[in-house]
Design a protein around this nucleic acid. Structure first.
Lengths: 219, 219
DNA sequence: AATTATTTTTAGATTTGTCTAAAATTAATT
DNA sequence: AATTAATTTTAGACAAATCTAAAAATAATT
């Protein structure tokens, strides 16, 4: 059985949303996919008929085993292509997401396996997210949210919570990227902003929103 | 202005067909695209409205300057990806066409230019076809049809006339590929078959159809 | 030149994915 | 508990790309 690009995008969006949520609502999906709730309802019926998910009226949606498998395949392709773009073609890590959104729908299985081998079976993509292997297994990276990092504990930025160009632009401006080593110097309860210090730089504060979008691992 | 994958495939098909023909007929296009004449007519109206081609009822079709530019861009991507698949990912030259049919529709201009640079600005793809540069210019390879090769003149296979899997399967079986050195020993007027001899091999005959599908350059 | 055959176009229907507006259901609040 | 608000679904319509069947135009043949 084969799936359209649209169907694949629905499955991928549900996969990402259900990481946190468990069950995913129609409105959440509509927002994620920049479409309307009515369109989502229509598509969910179709995907249910294809046994990619379980869905009951008004009860939200959850991927089936087949759906998860499909989603992991798409995520695998997306992250391998991101790795390729950065590692092989010298793209900036903040400019590969949109291109990978297209490349992830190329169907050839052989291409994926050859690309994976050529890249040396990488475990993490340039944003710090784990790449599922050909069986759908992925390494678990103990990402902590920066907001939860204890004060004065050195950590390394290992992932970002979103791929939005707005976020990536801000990070570029502040010279924060994957691998950046930093520690928290102060937490301000008034607006939940935090003061961070990057090695060899002066300390500066970042907003709660930004801190929540950054994941780190303690080093 | 951007174009759907379907529109791009029409433009590409017209480009290839008009190389020989000049004006391309509705039925030719329908055959090439495995669709029906009625569908072609509908699409030609749309592409005319987008100024990619000139088209008058019952008179056939011809690409405009814009249409040619678009076609060359698609051909460029197709052939660069084929080169990548063979050269970088170690695909066989006979198994890359279908994958490149998908990859050629990836839109990022930056990707194309970075890929081109990474590959070292190749001039010909693995089938011996020239790769247009970023301005749409391509090297002219003096491909001669094998049928026109003089007897006992050593030549090197430089291209194939079609990408059909049937042809590629036959070539694989006969151990003929790009770069194969051969000469014609006899031509049989009865069925226009020819006897060829590949270096270090016994001579054997090939059909007119096969000979017409092979292009060589005299060495 | 008239007739037959082929090619091409039109007309109307279908599928996929989307939309708006209205109805139905569930959640929140008074 | 009753009402309001928010969410979700249904109903009907639309655009893209396709199809079949019939009509129109062009080409081929007698």
């Amino acid at each position: 059985m084969s799936f359209s690009i649209t169907e694949e995008n629905y499955i991928k969006a549900i996969f990402h949303l259900q990481q946190e949520d468990g069950n995913v609502s129609t409105n959440e999906l509509a927002a994620e996919l920049h479409t309307k709730a009515a369109s989502v309802t229509d598509m969910l019926k179709k995907l249910k008929a294809k046994k990619l998910l379980s869905y009951e009226k008004y009860k939200g949606v959850r991927l089936s085993a087949d759906g998860k498998k499909l989603a992991l395949g798409i995520v695998r392709k997306h992250r391998l292509w991101e790795y390729f773009l950065v590692d092989t073609l010298q793209f900036g890590w903040d400019e590969v997401h949109e291109v990978a959104e297209e490349l992830e729908h190329i169907t050839s299985k052989k291409l994926v396996e050859k690309l994976d081998a050529f890249l040396g079976h990488p475990k993490f993509d340039p944003h710090g997210d784990p790449i599922p292997d050909s069986h759908g297994k992925m390494a678990v990276q103990q990402h902590i949210n920066l907001i939860d990092l204890p004060i004065n504990k050195m950590a390394e930025v290992s992932g970002v919570g979103s791929q939005s160009t707005e976020l990536l632009e801000l990070l570029k401006h502040k010279h924060i990227g994957i691998g950046t080593k930093l520690e928290i110097k102060k937490k301000f309860s008034f607006d939940h902003s935090i003061e961070i210090k990057i090695k060899n730089q002066n300390a500066f504060t970042i907003s709660q929103q930004l801190a929540q979008a950054l994941f780190v691992k303690i080093v």
